[in-house]
Design a protein around this nucleic acid. Structure first.
Length: 148
DNA sequence: GCCAACGTTGGC
DNA sequence: GCCAACGTTGGC
């Protein structure tokens, strides 16, 4: 089981929205690097939900409930004829809010996170979380450890 | 194919 | 509100 970090602007779609919706299709990822990470996701993987803007914190944990599949919002005419779909999405369901949200400041001040993509690449909206950092974040957040 | 101009993200 | 760090676009 791999863990990812998904960024979202809470004014547009927050972890509370996901909790209310029970499930959502995580669409709108257009950045090539973020899409590359998204395509490595597998059903049953998990994702930290990170709020950008004023919150700048990991606020909850979600489960990726589908393999990546072509973005249903993408007009068919945008796809090159016979080519692979340009964009991908996954579905998510909420698992648990963080007992203690993990702030960007906390991660930045922790030397164990200096190589983490969230710190190094400020504009990346989807990234993998290495297992070591995954466990540290769950510990800080009061989230259950990854199964498996 | 290069690269300057422009647009976007997202922290500060 | 500013700006750094990108990505994209379009003229050449």
């Amino acid at each position: 089981m791999a863990t990812f970090l998904f960024k979202t602007e809470p004014g547009e779609y927050s972890f509370a929205d996901l909790t209310a919706d029970k499930r959502t299709t995580w669409s709108g990822v257009r950045n090539a690097a973020a899409l590359g990470h998204l395509r490595t996701a597998k059903k049953g993987d998990q994702a930290f939900i990170y709020h950008t803007g004023d919150e700048r914190s990991i606020v909850g944990l979600a489960e990726i409930t589908t393999a990546p599949y072509p973005d249903p919002d993408q007009p068919a005419t945008d796809a090159p004829p016979g080519g692979p779909p340009k964009f991908a999405v996954v579905d998510l369901k909420p698992l648990k809010p963080c007992a203690k949200p993990v702030t960007l400041a906390a991660l930045k001040s922790d030397p164990r996170f200096t190589t983490f993509a969230l710190i190094r690449q400020s504009r990346l909206s989807i990234m993998p979380v290495p297992p070591t950092l995954d466990r540290i974040i769950r510990d800080l957040a009061g989230l259950p450890l990854p199964r498996g």
